[in-house]
Amino acid sequence: MLANKKQKLHGYIVTLIFAMVLKIMPLPDYLSRLNPDWVLLTLIYWNMAIPERIGVFNAWLVGLIIDVLTGRLLGQQALIYSLISFTCLKLHKRLRQYSLLQQSLFIFLSLLFSQIMIFWIESINSITQFTLIFWMPVLIGALFWSFIYMTLRFIRILGQIR
C-alpha cells in the first residue's frame, strides 16, 4: 500500500522534473526565446486533475526550485506559481468542464499573468530590454496546452495517479 502510494507520488514528480528539463534545455537562441514555461503548464494540469494532492504549497516549492535552477531572485517564480495555482484550485471544477479550447484561453491568461509578473520584476532589477518576442512563449504555451493535457492525462490514467 505504502509502496503503491509512493509510486503514485513519483508519477507527477517525474513529469515536473521532465518539465524543468524542457525549461532549461539548451536550444538555439531564437528557439529558446519561444520556449514556453513547461513547468507552469504541468503544474496547472496537476492542480486541475488532483487538487487535493498538489496545492499552493507544492506550487510554491516548485517555484523556489525553478528560481534556483534559473538563477532568478529567490521567491519570484515561487510567488507567481502559487498565485496561479491558487486560481486553478479555486476554479478547478469549472476548468474540468471546459473544452480544450476554452481551457487554452484560461492557460493563455495564466501564462500572460506570469509573464507580466516576470516582466515587472525583471524590469526592476535588470536593464534587459524586452522586445515583442518576450511575449511569444505565452501564445506558444497556450497552443501547446491541448498536447500537454493529452499527454499528462495519458500518464495519469496509466499511472493511476489520483
Binding site: 524543468m20 528539463v21 539548451p26 534556483v68
Partner: peptide, 24 residues
C-alpha cells in the same frame, strides 16, 4: 537567503547535469 539557495542548488544540480548530458 544565500544558504537556502545553496541548499536548493545542490538539489537541482542533478537536473542541470541531466540536461547537459546529451550534449556531453
Amino acid at each position: 537567503m544565500d544558504k537556502a539557495r545553496s541548499l536548493l542548488s545542490v538539489l537541482v544540480y542533478p537536473i542541470q547535469l541531466l540536461v547537459s548530458l546529451p550534449v556531453e
